[in-house]
């Protein structure tokens, strides 16, 4: 409702656009770190880190929607599912090369998100949350429909073949997929960061901060709100497509509401509106449940909840707070 919107506006508005990204040095160090990770670790760890990157893309996409345009979505798992199924169906049913499925997933999800954004325009706050939630709940049922079964494989889902490294590169399949995912993630990060700095991005931020003022300045509210939905859905779809390729399997029950919750929690932990935080959030949602399971098998949910509480108590603005703290203390 109005309350959530106002508070959302205030909190997110506290971050300036300039601060929504990182200094160049930090970026290069991070990139270098990400480049060397797969060297000398087992394929399973590489797989896990790849999953982190995929979630990071999905969280980044939600950050674009919530952080930039101020709209709240619990339906990200639906866009992720559409992307994953697009990739899986193209590869397995039509034999398309895996790399080509990503742009296709992006375009399809963009259209889907844009169209969904149209009715969602009239809703805000909890009502938008409920509408997107409905989308997330409905989505896992769609591939199960008998009409679509020849393509989606129904309840059993589809198995996807793992691609080999091209040009005879001396890389294992997992390492190759890691670098493939990393390059996609870097491109999407770059696109997002630039988008926020562009005319479109500024229009979205204006819509988030004050709709009435924005429309008085000539910003087309419906266009930018739906555009934000479409863009966010497109990137989430690419993440979904990558997810399908890496996990080698899509099934309706992989894309339940829990996925939306995980993406949402990741965004909060990383810091709403702070793009690099997406990576931190992704690390949290991939590794903390495992850690919780390690501490206590029976109480893993409780341990996860306690850790999440501890994080939001200590850092209500997420990882962004740590970054700000460091930035303040660095010599200029």
């Amino acid at each position: 409702m109005s309350a959530i919107e106002e508070t959302l506006g205030q909190t997110v508005a506290a971050v300036e656009v300039r601060k929504s990204s990182m200094p160049t040095v930090a970026r290069l160090v991070l990139l270098l770190g990400l480049l060397v990770i797969p060297l000398g670790v087992s394929d399973f760890v590489v797989f896990q880190v790849t999953t982190v990157l995929i979630y990071a893309i999905a969280i980044l996409a939600l950050n674009l929607l919530t952080g930039a345009s101020g709209q709240f979505s619990l339906g990200q798992s639906a866009f992720y599912a559409v992307g994953a199924y697009t990739a899986a169906i193209m590869m397995e049913v039509y034999g398309v090369n895996y790399a080509l499925t990503l742009p296709a997933a992006g375009v399809i999800c963009f259209l889907f998100g844009f169209l969904f954004g149209l009715p969602a325009l009239r809703l805000s706050g909890v009502y938008l949350a409920l509408a997107t939630f409905a989308l997330a709940v409905a989505m896992p049922q769609i591939p199960k429909l008998a009409v679509l079964e020849p393509w989606t494989g129904g309840v059993h889902g589809l198995v996807v073949n793992k691609p080999e490294a091209p040009f005879d590169l001396p890389l294992s399949q997992d390492a190759w997929l890691y670098y493939f995912t990393l390059s996609v993630a870097v491109v999407i990060y770059w696109l997002c960061a630039n988008l926020l700095r562009s005319r479109t991005g500024r229009a979205m931020l204006a819509v988030r901060d004050n709709e009435i003022a924005a429309s008085a300045l000539g910003v087309d509210l419906s266009l930018y709100k739906t555009l934000a939905f479409g863009t966010s859905a497109a990137f989430t779809g690419v993440a979904g497509a990558l997810g399908a390729i890496v996990v080698q399997f899509v099934a309706p029950d992989s894309f339940t509401f829990q996925l939306s919750i995980a993406i949402f929690v990741g965004m909060i932990v990383g810091g709403v509106g702070w793009l690099p935080g997406s990576l931190v959030g992704a690390v949290f949602i991939v590794f903390v449940p495992n850690l919780a399971e390690g501490i206590s098998k029976g109480l893993s949910g409780a341990v996860f909840g306690v850790i999440l509480f501890a994080v939001i108590f200590a850092l209500p603005h997420g990882a962004r707070q740590i970054a700000d703290w460091i930035a303040k203390r660095l010599p200029r």
């Binding site: 309350a3 959530i4 508070t7 959302l8 205030q10 909190t11 997110v12 919530t66 709240f72 919750i261 949402f264 929690v265 965004m267 909060i268 932990v269 709403v272 949910g301 409780a302 996860f304 909840g305 306690v306 999440l308 509480f309 939001i312 209500p316 603005h317």
Partner: peptide
């Protein structure tokens, strides 16, 4: 922020 409260609800749910 209100969104953090939502994360709190999710944590409480899990616990």
């Amino acid at each position: 922020p209100v969104l953090v409260h939502v994360a709190g609800f999710i944590a409480l749910f899990a616990i």
